[in-house]
């Protein structure tokens, strides 16, 4: 389901960050050049969620201004999607922050 895609994408991204893929091992490691950072990934995920929310906003706005072609069920489904996408994104974010804090607590 596409409503899960933003979350799913985030999950896959995390997977690729946490567990280095075999394909990456075959690639020549470039030192000093970090690949697309975690911050970028989080930004992208938030951007995706934002897009879903913008769609929902548009649907609701069209509905309340009685634009032709805007229906209540469409608006409601868009709203639900936005809500789920946001919650999913937030869950992933909290999970990541938790992991980061866990690492910070490592005894040196």
């Amino acid at each position: 389901m596409a409503m899960n895609i933003t979350g799913l994408k985030a999950y896959k991204e995390i997977q690729s960050i946490v567990t280095p893929k075999e394909t990456q091992a075959t690639e020549a490691p470039v030192k000093g050049q970090p690949k697309e950072g975690f911050a970028q990934f989080l930004k992208d995920a938030i951007h995706d969620v934002n897009n879903v929310q913008a769609t929902a906003e548009d649907r609701v706005e069209g509905l309340i201004t009685k634009k032709p072609g805007y229906t209540n069920h469409e608006a409601m489904i868009a709203l639900e999607k936005a809500d789920i996408a946001f919650q999913l994104m937030n869950s992933v974010r909290s999970k990541i922050v938790r992991a980061y804090e866990e690492i910070l607590r490592t005894q040196v």
Binding site: M1, M3, N4, G7, I77, E80, K81, I84, Q87, L88, S91
Partner: peptide, 8 residues
């Protein structure tokens, strides 16, 4: 939608 929420 309920399924999506449950999945979370």
């Amino acid at each position: 939608m309920e399924m999506s929420r449950e999945g979370r």
